[in-house]
Computed example of a mutant assay.
Amino acid sequence: MSKCEDELLIKYINLKRHEYINDLQVLLGYAQLGKSDKIYDYIQKIIDECNNERNVFNSDMDSIMNFIKNKIEEK
């Protein structure tokens, strides 16, 4: 991999870590408010996102890098 790709991967990993922490904070908030229906919906949303990412990461490197670039640019 090139240095540019390495840097993108590091940015992506940091972004994912930030997203995971945010997801946990949202779930904790719903739990504290007793909104179990919201917890189930939110968990399903996370599962769907993970499945979409899995599909991308099971493809070729160009698709993976394009996905990562787009994800970083969104934020």
Rank of each mutant, 00 (worst) to 15 (best):
Met1Ile: 09
Met1Val: 05
Lys3Asp: 11
Lys3His: 09
Lys3Thr: 05
Lys3Pro: 00
Cys4Thr: 11
Cys4Ile: 11
Glu5Ile: 04
Asp6Asn: 09
Asp6Tyr: 13
Glu7Asp: 09
Leu8Val: 02
Leu8Arg: 09
Leu8Phe: 10
Leu8Asp: 05
Leu8Gln: 08
Leu9Tyr: 14
Leu9Gly: 03
Ile10Glu: 14
Tyr12Phe: 15
Tyr12Glu: 03
Asn14Gln: 12
Asn14Ser: 07
Asn14Cys: 05
Arg17Tyr: 14
Arg17Cys: 03
Arg17Ser: 07
His18Gly: 03
His18Ala: 05
Glu19Leu: 09
Tyr20Val: 11
Tyr20Gln: 11
Tyr20Asn: 10
Ile21His: 10
Ile21Leu: 13
Ile21Thr: 13
Ile21Ala: 08
Asn22Met: 06
Asp23Glu: 08
Asp23Ile: 00
Asp23Gln: 05
Leu24Val: 06
Leu24Ile: 10
Gln25Ala: 05
Gln25Tyr: 07
Val26Ala: 01
Leu27Lys: 03
Leu28Gln: 13
Gly29Glu: 04
Gly29Thr: 03
Gly29Ile: 00
Tyr30Arg: 00
Tyr30Trp: 02
Ala31Phe: 05
Ala31Lys: 09
Ala31Cys: 04
Gln32Gly: 01
Gln32Ser: 04
Leu33Thr: 06
Leu33Arg: 14
Leu33Trp: 05
Gly34Ala: 01
Gly34Cys: 01
Gly34Thr: 03
Ser36Cys: 07
Ser36Val: 15
Ser36Asn: 08
Ser36Lys: 11
Asp37Ile: 06
Asp37Lys: 11
Asp37Trp: 06
Asp37Gly: 07
Asp37Met: 04
Lys38Leu: 11
Lys38Asp: 10
Lys38Arg: 07
Lys38Pro: 00
Ile39Lys: 02
Ile39Thr: 01
Tyr40Ala: 10
Tyr40Pro: 00
Asp41Gln: 12
Asp41Val: 04
Asp41Glu: 15
Tyr42Ser: 01
Tyr42Val: 00
Tyr42Phe: 13
Tyr42Ala: 00
Tyr42Arg: 09
Gln44Arg: 13
Ile46Gly: 00
Asp48Gln: 15
Asp48Lys: 15
Asp48Asn: 14
Asp48Ile: 15
Glu49Met: 13
Glu49Asn: 12
Cys50Pro: 02
Cys50Tyr: 15
Cys50Lys: 15
Cys50Val: 12
Asn51Phe: 12
Asn51Tyr: 13
Asn51Ala: 11
Asn52Gly: 07
Glu53Lys: 10
Glu53Gln: 14
Glu53Tyr: 05
Arg54Ile: 09
Arg54Trp: 12
Arg54Pro: 02
Asn55Val: 05
Asn55Gln: 12
Val56Asp: 03
Val56Tyr: 05
Val56Pro: 03
Phe57Met: 09
Phe57Ala: 03
Phe57Val: 08
Ser59Met: 01
Asp60Trp: 01
Met61Ser: 08
Ser63Ala: 04
Ser63Gln: 07
Ile64Asn: 01
Met65Cys: 03
Met65Phe: 13
Met65Ile: 15
Asn66Tyr: 09
Ile68Trp: 09
Ile68Thr: 07
Ile68Phe: 07
Lys69Asn: 13
Asn70Trp: 04
Asn70Lys: 15
Asn70Tyr: 08
Lys71Ala: 10
Lys71Tyr: 11
Ile72Phe: 06
Ile72Gln: 06
Ile72Glu: 05
Ile72Trp: 04
Glu73Arg: 14
Glu73Ile: 12
Glu73Val: 07
Glu73Leu: 14
Glu73Thr: 13
Lys75Cys: 06
Lys75Pro: 02
